[in-house]
Amino acid sequence: MALLGTIVNALLIIIGVIVGSFLSKIPESMKDTVMKGIGLTVMVLGLSMGIKSNNFLIVIICIVFGAILGELMDLDGKLNTLGTWLEKKIGGNGTSNISQAFVTATLIFVIGAMAVIGALDSGIRGDHQVLYTKGMIDGFTAAILTTTLGIGVIFSSVPVFIYQGLIALFATQINKLVPEALLDSFIMELTAVGGIMIFAIGMNLIGILKIKVANLLPGLLITAIIVPILYFL
C-alpha cells in the first residue's frame, strides 16, 4: 500500500498534537521560556538546511520573487483570516494564532529530504521505514509545538498527507521521468529555500522580528520551476 507510510506519518502528528494539548496547561513563564527554546532550535535547524544549497543565487531568487508573489496575494492576511474563522468554529474566542501554528508546523514537517525520499520509497518499493521514522520525529515535534502554539498544529497533518501522498502515488512515474541528478538538485535547493523560511519562523518565535513567513511560501513553487530550467540549460 503506497500510502501507508504517509497515513502513519499524518496520524502520528495528530497523536502528537493530542498529547501536547494535555501538556499545554503550564505556567506562562515556563511556556515563554519553552517557546524561546523552540525558537532557537528552529533557527539552528533552518540555518543548517539553508546552507545546503549548491547555488545560493537560486535561494535568493526564490525568496525574493516568492515574497513579491506572497505580498501581492496577501497569503499571510488570508491565512490569519482563515485561522480566526477556524478558531471560532472549534469553540475558541478567535484570538489564538492558528495560522502561525499551521505554517510553522507545515514547513517543519514538509520541507526536507525525508519527506521526498520517504514518499518515493513508499511508492516505488513499498518500504515505509523512512516515513515511519519521520512520523515519530514529527509526532514528538508536534507535541512540543502544541504546548506553545496551540491546537492549530493539527492542521499541518493535511498538507503533509497531500504532499507526501501525491509523491508516493506518482513515485514510479517520477522515478522514470525525472533524472536522478535533477531530483537530487531539486531536493537540495528546496531544502535550502525552506530552511530560510524555517529560520524566519524561529526569529518570530523568539520575538526578534515579525516576518510574514506565509508570504514567502510561493518561493517553494518558484524553486520547482527554476531548478529544472537551470538543469536542462
Results as ranks from 00 to 15, higher is better:
residue 58 I to G: 01
residue 109 F to E: 01
residue 130 V to R: 03
residue 130 V to M: 14
residue 73 M to L: 14
residue 213 V to R: 00
residue 214 A to P: 06
residue 158 V to S: 00
residue 39 G to F: 03
residue 75 L to K: 03
residue 232 F to V: 13
residue 157 S to F: 11
residue 2 A to N: 12
residue 185 S to K: 12
residue 218 P to M: 11
residue 222 I to S: 08
residue 101 A to N: 08
residue 115 A to S: 14
residue 175 N to C: 10
residue 161 F to Q: 08
residue 6 T to I: 10
residue 197 M to R: 01
residue 203 M to C: 14
residue 1 M to V: 10
residue 230 L to V: 13
residue 144 I to T: 13
residue 35 M to R: 15
residue 201 I to R: 02
residue 207 G to E: 11
residue 63 I to G: 02
residue 59 V to E: 04
residue 54 N to P: 01
residue 42 V to R: 00
residue 65 F to T: 11
residue 160 V to S: 06
residue 112 G to I: 00
residue 82 L to S: 12
residue 215 N to E: 13
residue 24 S to E: 13
residue 92 G to Y: 07
residue 11 L to I: 15
residue 124 I to M: 12
residue 217 L to F: 01
residue 40 L to V: 08
residue 9 N to D: 13
residue 96 S to H: 02
residue 28 E to N: 12
residue 196 I to H: 05
residue 43 M to P: 02
residue 148 T to Y: 07
residue 8 V to L: 14
residue 122 S to H: 05
residue 217 L to A: 04
residue 92 G to D: 04
residue 23 L to V: 11
residue 131 L to H: 05
residue 9 N to G: 00
residue 8 V to F: 13
residue 205 L to D: 03
residue 201 I to Y: 06
residue 11 L to W: 07
residue 233 L to Y: 14
residue 162 I to N: 04
residue 222 I to C: 04
residue 209 L to G: 05
residue 209 L to Q: 13
residue 124 I to H: 09
residue 171 A to V: 05
residue 193 V to C: 08
residue 223 T to K: 03
residue 228 P to Q: 14
residue 127 D to C: 06
residue 199 F to T: 07
residue 107 L to R: 01
residue 233 L to V: 15
residue 24 S to V: 09
residue 2 A to G: 12
residue 153 V to Q: 06
residue 73 M to A: 14
residue 85 W to T: 14
residue 52 K to T: 15
residue 167 I to R: 02
residue 147 T to R: 04
residue 122 S to Q: 04
residue 211 I to G: 13
residue 199 F to S: 03
residue 38 I to G: 06
residue 88 K to C: 08
residue 23 L to N: 10
residue 60 I to Y: 09
residue 231 Y to S: 12
residue 202 G to A: 07
residue 49 M to V: 02
residue 153 V to W: 08
residue 60 I to R: 08
residue 174 I to G: 06
